[in-house]
Design a protein around this nucleic acid. Structure first.
Lengths: 159, 159
DNA sequence: CATAGTTCGCTGCGTCGCGCAGCAATTTTT
DNA sequence: AAAAATTGCTGCGCGACGCAGCGAACTATG
């Protein structure tokens, strides 16, 4: 019965995904507690370091799902903590570029890196092809999420 | 240079993972907005439906990372919204069992299911072996997260 | 059986992140 | 040049959350 096996795999992946995401949320929370800042802040730093160039406040707002007002406050906290610096954008003087402070962000990275050791062990057990499979799946899942988010926003709310 | 290719894969997976998780957070937020409740509530329902048996308030607190007090309020909100019911536990009369209300939770599930259509498309492109690879990876990543969370909690805070 | 210690869930209280609305400054459009 | 849109910032109020403490119930020790 490859049919039911297949269905079982789907069901399993669903459950595992939810637990996986929950585990990440908890981990993110733990990192935030450990560093004495907020989950949103850690999330923001995590996302910023995945981008090569400095971001504007508006871009940060979009990435985190916050309003521009809240994003301003978020950057305020990060700036006060010395994690980022504000720089006016010369091209568009309305904009403010937010640049991570490498040595400060490295402290956050350090926590991730210690997790990295365990990660290495996990990754090393995978072949290149398997890694590519995982990467591709996450990419597509992310893309799907964004599509669905758009759909939800343009849909009427039940009740 | 398989060496650098490998390193590139690691780097890539790291970036993709962060974006993947960010996408989930945004999606969770969008679902919450759409249903008129809070991200934490949606997260909780998502986790509850992954469990076969009713949970106690304490278990919910642990799963979500909240204090028992906040978990009580969380259950209050869910109960008021008709998503769950409280039932005293006969075995241990201190405990309160929280049971999801199927038809009400189905509304949340409906949103997930519509996402599910896109998910199907993604999943169908994978072989059984690939699915197992992904499942295994997420399992191990989750386990690692929990290990690291414990480590962080028993570690002194920097500064 | 009695009693101290632990666990569970609930409740005031204060904190603070967040959305909302409005604002000035700048850019873009017509 | 004027109108419209965009960007980032600031009061304001809401409400989720952690914290501390409570009573009830279970468990361990004598």
């Amino acid at each position: 019965m490859t049919e039911t096996d297949r269905a079982r795999l789907y069901e399993e992946l669903g459950v595992v995904s939810r637990r996986h995401l929950a585990a990440y949320v908890l981990f993110n929370q733990a990192v935030a507690d450990h560093l004495g800042l907020h989950p949103t802040d850690v999330q923001c730093l995590s996302l910023m370091t995945a981008e090569p160039e400095p971001l504007t406040v508006k871009q940060i707002a979009d990435m985190t799902g916050l309003t521009t007002g809240s994003a301003t406050r978020l950057v305020d906290r990060l700036e006060r903590g010395g994690y980022v610096t504000r720089t006016p954008d010369r091209q568009d003087r309305r904009r403010v570029l937010v640049t991570p402070v490498p040595e400060r962000v490295a402290r956050v990275g350090a926590v991730w890196d210690e997790l990295g050791h365990g990660w290495q062990a996990i990754l090393e057990d995978h072949t290149d092809a398997e890694l590519r499979t995982i990467i591709q799946h996450m990419r597509r899942a992310s893309a799907l999420s964004h599509t669905q988010i758009e759909r939800l926003r343009t849909m009427p709310r039940p009740d």
